[in-house]
Design a protein around this nucleic acid. Sequence first.
DNA 1: TCACATAGAAAGTGAGCACTTGCTATCTAT
DNA 2: ATAGATAGCAAGTGCTCACTTTCTATGTGA
Lengths: 212, 212
Amino acid sequence: MTTTRERRTQAERREGTIAALLDATVACLTERGYAATSTAAVCAEAGVSQGALFRYFPTRQALLVATAEHVATRNVEAFRTTVAGASVATADDVAAVLGHLRRAVLSPTNQTWRELLVAARADADLRVALHPARESLHAQMLAAAADLWGEHLGADDLAAVLSIVVNMLDGLAFSALDPDPTAPPGRTVERALRLLAEMIVRHYPSPMEQHA
Amino acid sequence: MTTTRERRTQAERREGTIAALLDATVACLTERGYAATSTAAVCAEAGVSQGALFRYFPTRQALLVATAEHVATRNVEAFRTTVAGASVATADDVAAVLGHLRRAVLSPTNQTWRELLVAARADADLRVALHPARESLHAQMLAAAADLWGEHLGADDLAAVLSIVVNMLDGLAFSALDPDPTAPPGRTVERALRLLAEMIVRHYPSPMEQHA
DNA sequence: TCACATAGAAAGTGAGCACTTGCTATCTAT
DNA sequence: ATAGATAGCAAGTGCTCACTTTCTATGTGA
């Protein structure tokens, strides 16, 4: 008695294997880090052989670049949905957005992206390969932020605020060494995010601000 | 005819070799990154044999932990001297401090510290080994910041401001992938630091602020 | 149905890894 | 001066790495 033999086209098998490899690479990078993400580890996680991996990705680096582009699109989508429709009229509003962004930034795909960025600092080839994805990511996040803040912020101010926010959140994510990233944020972090929200709304008061 | 034979005591030889190894590890970590910092690479950089390395550091990880503690003390000293005696009365003052801090954060010892922090995220042993140094670093930076801002900031506010500033600078350093870290900061970064300075002095006006 | 192309598994291969072993050179105490 | 200790070198050792080769299973076009 054989298990149900599902018939799949070549294209389906191919895409299924590639997707499994990309997901496994994300898992390995977040759980083990860049140095320990070997091709053998990825294949074990994905449940395929190394032969399968090297059929689709000629080198380990090609796999990592493909993974980077994979997570980059997911990250920008997460950023957009987190920010879409939110209000930034009051400090509470901005603080809420920052809190949601902080959680998004701790997701596996964001961890993966950062892990690859750090590795790219010491690897010229990886750096070049990641450059277009970086540009696209930045542009799309700027667009989403512009949508959030409306037009009463100049392009330069918008870019500056975005830089402060995302760099601070990235810095937080880098130094968050707890094994459980969904743990309570800690008082200092919460206060810092709250303070940043207050500073932003004070510096850029919304024209339609309404006090509760 | 032999070259000048300098006579050194055992302690001098020992300390010289250890210092060379620590410096070489810093160089390897900043130039090649964590994954490529092998014991062989460190020894080649230091000009000693692997036997010498393993005489003083029983494992590669022990070398990395020792290097972490080495750079941690240097980093806190750099932070203190950068901040010592500075004024935070005006936005220009704060912006200047942020600019100096940004350069300090891009130094090799700071790059090394960050590289090890990232590696610690995926390595439980390294994480616990680095924990005391992390605590000490944070406490000393808080003390230096308190010295800078005086007493008209509560401890909680001080910690929050410090968190915003150092996390944003760390985030900037992580995403600064230029081969030359001393390159001009770029307009967005400059504007972001300037904006952050303005927001801070507006939110926490110095009681003795004097307009030029 | 059957020649052919593609997907993927299994078992390599040399290079580089962390680390060890044994030996020589240098310093120190007597 | 010399015996013993320490510093440091050179050559291993087994293992894992990225990657290859070979071969089998499966889907595809005629």
